[in-house]
């Protein structure tokens, strides 16, 4: 007993001081990229050609665009670019409400807004989620699971992962949705009583990621489920996911 208490004392208090304080992130974190199109010579497509996920595109002499829903944050493009036009900043806030918002543009990045009206009053202070891994490689799953540890203490925000879809307010989906998981995913979704939310976590769930257009997979939940929150990354940092969820619930203060 004494040993247990002593160990407890030594382990200390470990919950992050966030969202009150600023988050601690690795300095090499490859977060939201920026593209300085002024540096792009006309006709240059080096970044587009280097991208393994077809996230980058460029029409003629327009600026290159990056679809964060496909981006694996591998930085192959930044390495391939001799002009220094692409930079990956340690900016972890990435979640959006609409698929088209993930297309990086020179305008301000439209971070996820809160749910509206009845949905917000239902889920704003309590959100029970059923997680479905549909071909997820266990990296997204692991960094979603870590939110339930004392470090992030997901419960303090009223968010909880539940065992039964019947007890859930929505689904959190990871993975490119293999053909072999499609039925199980759809059945689980149907078992969630409406109104319900769908959160797509990671490049695979949003667009298929490295498995995009493989015949063995769907392109994530694209065309299968109506998504309320997109959380890009491969995998997203736990704080990226938590930040997205709190935005969806309208739990982050203005300007954060």
């Amino acid at each position: 007993m004494l040993k247990t208490l002593l160990a407890r004392l030594r382990q200390g208090h470990r919950t992050v001081r966030w969202p009150e304080g600023s988050p601690t992130l690795p300095d090499r974190l490859r977060g939201r990229p920026t593209i300085d199109a002024a540096r792009c010579p006309s006709g240059c497509r080096l970044c587009v050609e280097s991208c393994p996920a077809e996230a980058l595109a460029r029409t003629d002499d327009g600026p290159p665009t990056c679809d964060l829903g496909r981006c694996l944050f591998c930085t192959e493009c930044a390495t391939a670019c001799p002009h220094g036009a692409i930079r990956f900043a340690p900016e972890h806030r990435l979640a959006t409400r609409r698929r088209q918002d993930l297309l990086l543009s020179p305008q301000e990045y439209p971070l996820a807004r809160a749910l509206e009206g009845r949905m917000r009053s239902l889920f704003g202070r309590s959100l029970k989620l059923r997680q479905v891994s549909a071909g997820g490689c266990n990296a997204c799953e692991a960094d979603v699971n870590v939110l339930t540890t004392v470090v992030f203490d997901l419960g303090r925000f009223g968010i909880q992962f539940v065992a039964s879809p019947r007890h859930a307010d929505g689904l959190l989906v990871t993975g490119p949705v293999p053909q072999n998981m499609r039925l199980a995913l759809m059945k689980t979704w149907e078992a969630v009583p409406p109104p319900r939310v769908v959160i797509a976590v990671g490049a695979c769930a949003i667009s298929g990621g490295p498995y995009r257009d493989r015949p063995e997979c769907s392109n994530g939940v694209e065309g299968l489920l109506p998504v309320d929150l997109y959380i890009p990354g491969c995998p997203p940092h736990p704080l990226t996911t938590l930040d997205g969820m709190l935005r969806l619930m309208g739990r982050l203060k203005e300007g954060r």
Partner: peptide, 25 residues
């Protein structure tokens, strides 16, 4: 088998741009 994503079929003919992301996942 629920997680079958066709990894070996996707790796055949490589190395190509997607080889490393597939190996890493």
């Amino acid at each position: 088998g629920y997680q079958h994503r066709g990894v070996e079929a996707a790796l055949a003919g490589g190395p190509h741009k997607r080889t490393l992301p597939i190996i890493e996942t």
